[in-house]
């Protein structure tokens, strides 16, 4: 019974956070943009049309409501109508993880739609003058050295902890976890590199805003990398000591923290109230 209650509490929190609270925060940002920076005054902000932005927002919200309904249905089925937690333990362990992945689909849609808009912005940009700063950028201009050291320590700590639990043997499980950790960090490194030295995605974005976005993205990536390493270590711990109820908490918290980290990154790096929108104005 306590395990069932714990599962319900964590799962309700996950449903509310990822499919209701954060989507509403995202749509509030879109509403603010539409209200304060309309197409009539800021046409470059809407390479297709203002209507397109509104339809993206509607689809995004609909997808989230759908996920919310699925979440509530799953919750009802597994906790209220079917109380046999022990029988379905393995499935319930994986449920927050699988459902969490599905909850990220609307964010993925929003990201793809945003990328398409930026691509259109670049295609419709007819300016012949291009500017660039002659100041070189480096990783440590954006994040302190201790944070990167923290990333490396968390990675090594997670690896050594896994090896310690497995009697210093490179078992299949350890190898898979090590591979996943390396792949995650390489991906994060590539994203950070792209932000530092890659092409400017938004041609009208001011240099100050770009610097701010880069800084917050690298901070978030570093924090998520540390968190992923800790998540892997925690998973090893609960598997080793057979604490299956704790696995549900960890799996669910994993997605909740990831969602919060990505939102905080966007909210701070791209704070619509402090961003410079002058570049999107009509010529």
């Amino acid at each position: 019974m306590p395990n069932t209650l714990l599962f319900i509490a964590i799962f309700v929190c996950q449903i509310w956070l990822l499919s209701f609270y954060l989507p509403h925060r995202y749509t509030n940002r879109i509403n603010y943009l539409l209200e304060h920076f309309p197409e009539s005054q800021y046409p470059k902000l809407y390479p297709e049309s203002e209507e397109k932005a509104k339809s993206v927002k509607t689809i995004y919200l609909t997808m989230n409501y759908l996920m919310l309904l699925i979440g509530v249905a799953l919750l009802c089925y597994f906790s209220l109508f079917d109380g046999s937690y022990q029988q379905k333990e393995k499935f319930l362990d994986a449920l927050p993880l699988f459902y969490g992945m599905c909850q990220f689909l609307p964010i993925a849609y929003l990201e793809i739609a945003g990328r398409n808009q930026l691509k259109l912005m670049r295609l419709t940009d007819k300016r012949t003058h291009r500017k660039a700063s002659l100041t070189p950028r480096s990783l440590f201009d954006y994040v302190p050295q201790w944070l990167i050291a923290g990333v490396a320590l968390a990675f090594l700590g997670s690896l050594f902890f896994d090896l310690y639990i497995n009697n210093w043997q490179f078992t299949e499980k350890v190898t898979i976890k090590l591979g996943s950790l390396i792949a995650t960090n390489v991906l994060f490194g590539a994203i950070a590199y792209y932000h530092l030295y890659g092409k400017k995605c938004d041609p009208y974005q001011s240099e100050t805003d770009r610097q701010k976005v880069t800084q917050h993205t690298i901070y978030s990536l570093s924090a998520i990398s540390i968190f992923v390493s800790l998540f892997f270590a925690a998973q090893t711990f609960v598997n080793h000591f057979d604490l299956s109820y704790a696995e549900i908490i960890i799996n669910s918290l994993y997605f909740q923290i990831l969602a919060i980290a990505s939102f905080v990154n966007i909210a701070r790096g791209l704070d619509v109230k402090t961003m410079d929108f002058s570049g999107y104005k009509k010529d």
């Binding site: 291009r130 500017k131 660039a132 700063s133 002659l134 070189p136 030295y197 092409k199 400017k200």
Partner: peptide, 20 residues
């Protein structure tokens, strides 16, 4: 504006910033 010893951006950084 550019003093002796001042660092310059890498070729890749400047090329990407200028989209050339």
């Amino acid at each position: 504006q550019l003093l002796p010893g001042a660092p310059l951006p890498s070729i890749r950084q400047l090329a990407n910033d200028l989209a050339v």
